[in-house]
Simulated assay, not measured.
Amino acid sequence: MRYAVTAVCGLAGLAVLAALPMWLDAYSLRIATGVFMWAGLACAWNIVGGYAGYISFGHSAFFGIGAYATAMLMQRGVGWPFLATLPVGIAAAAAVAALIGAPTMRLRGAYFAIATWAFAEMLLQLVNVLEVTGGPGGLSLPPFLDEFFFYYVMLAAAVAAYLMVWLLMERSRFGFRLRALRDHEPAAEALGIHTTLVKVQAFSLSAAITALFGGVFAYWVTFINPRSVMGGEITDQMVVMVLLGGLGTVWGPALGAALLWLTNRMIWASLGDTTIYLPILGLIIAAVVLFLPNGLVSLLPGGGRLRRRGRKLLAGMVRKL
């Protein structure tokens, strides 16, 4: 009965979101599209940070891989259609994640965080000097100025990401194995779980979802450069969105993403500048750790279990660092 009610509520919510563009102006439509993108990115980071318990500061690299795959394949000399470029970016990001994840996922705590940050910075510098990526000048994509199209593409991508996470992380053996190694990795190994393989699989899945949104973003904005799609602030925002919404929960990242992105746009609309946004992110991190370690989802009905789990996850993350 509970699942039937959840399904009905979910379908009703999707119907509302599908009809929403009819009541939004062009600017509001772009903001809503951005909410879906950041919700999907936060969902992707939550697989590694929330369900696996490993803090990654390198997800901007996977976002950039997806963006550059789409941009490079849609250049005039190649001329691929947009939808055909997305699987290439997804596959490339997943392969790179598996390649670097095999050695780095054996590291623990701050060592893994530093390794992923170093990888992202290395890739950023590489893209800056390669001619095929346009160097620091970036790449332009064929313009397609249809906000409705990108709204629905981002919505579909976000729905697919959350549905996949719900099925894999909450309802499958893979999710149980991943959470088992997060809670106590030596015990999971003693039970016969190949922990390194499970972590690499989770890392690759997270990278693939991140690259999907990177590819859509590139076509949406029609111009990219290394800093716009591989800057460290992209990962920083993913991390804060997940912490604010609820680490290791299905819907927490969506709540955190919506609140922070709307805050970002309100600051820009009021001040014409988002410089103050980064200090706000720092204050939010401090406030979450001190007063709301379980995230916003714990304030919803039935949040007692989430409060207990949130404190446990955040405490485990701090210990690993």
Score class of each variant (00 low, 15 high):
V8Y: 04
G10F: 15
L11N: 05
G13K: 01
A15G: 07
M22S: 06
L24P: 08
S28Y: 14
G34W: 01
W45G: 06
N46E: 09
I47V: 10
V48W: 11
G49H: 06
Y51N: 02
Y54F: 11
S60N: 15
A61R: 02
A61Q: 09
I65C: 13
T70I: 14
V78I: 14
W80Y: 10
A84L: 10
L86R: 00
I90S: 01
V96K: 00
A97H: 08
R106C: 15
G109Y: 11
Y111T: 05
F112C: 09
A118K: 04
F119G: 09
M122F: 15
V132S: 00
G134F: 04
G135Q: 02
L139V: 05
L139C: 06
P143S: 01
A161L: 13
L163Y: 14
R171M: 09
F176H: 03
A180F: 06
L181P: 03
D183F: 12
L191Y: 12
H194V: 08
V198C: 04
K199R: 03
A202K: 02
A202W: 13
F203H: 03
L205A: 06
A207T: 05
A208N: 07
F217P: 02
P226Q: 00
G231A: 08
G231M: 09
G232M: 12
I234F: 15
Q237V: 15
M238I: 12
V240M: 03
V240L: 13
M241R: 02
G246Y: 07
G246H: 06
G246M: 08
L247G: 04
T249M: 06
W251V: 06
W261P: 07
W261A: 01
W268G: 13
I276Q: 03
L278R: 04
I280G: 03
L281H: 04
A286T: 14
V288E: 08
V288S: 02
L292K: 02
N294V: 12
V297H: 10
G302M: 09
R308G: 15
K312H: 13
L313G: 04
